[in-house]
């Protein structure tokens, strides 16, 4: 069974549900976890959910722009991960913790 035949049997809504679920799981993680590294990973998860949707639409509509955007998102995600982790390391050095709830100096 080639991928093309499977593709023909799929509806866009399936991918919509799938990526929404993935996105929500990532969001749940962001809200629930306190470890900054896990938080960053959850963000990656959410980005991937979006990517998946982009690709799905792109394929369905026969428009390659969506895939280009995914490409750019990956770039940004990589940059974000790099800087984010660097900041994390810095935070850990200063506080010996990666718990985000410690970082509440910006009180109103």
């Amino acid at each position: 069974m080639s991928s093309l035949t499977i593709f023909n049997q799929l509806e866009i809504s399936h991918y919509i549900y799938l990526s929404t679920v993935l996105f929500s799981i990532g969001l749940f993680g962001v809200l629930f976890r306190r470890n900054a590294i896990i938080l960053l990973m959850c963000i990656e998860l959410m980005l991937n959910a979006v990517n998946l949707l982009f690709v799905a639409f792109s394929s369905y509509m026969g428009d390659s722009d969506g895939q280009i955007f995914v490409f750019f998102i990956m770039v940004v995600a990589a940059a974000e991960a790099a800087v984010g982790l660097a900041i994390l390391v810095l935070v850990y050095r200063n506080t010996r913790k990666t718990d985000v709830s410690v970082l509440d100096n910006l009180k109103g």
């Binding site: 991918y15 960053l40 690709v55 394929s59 895939q67 990589a78």
Partner: peptide, 24 residues
């Protein structure tokens, strides 16, 4: 791959699994 986005499938592996997650 199922969605016929072969290039992105590969890039995804290389960038995310290969680079970002290693960073993590």
């Amino acid at each position: 791959v199922l969605l016929n986005a072969q290039f992105l499938a590969v890039v995804n592996l290389i960038v995310y699994a290969g680079a970002i997650m290693v960073l993590f």
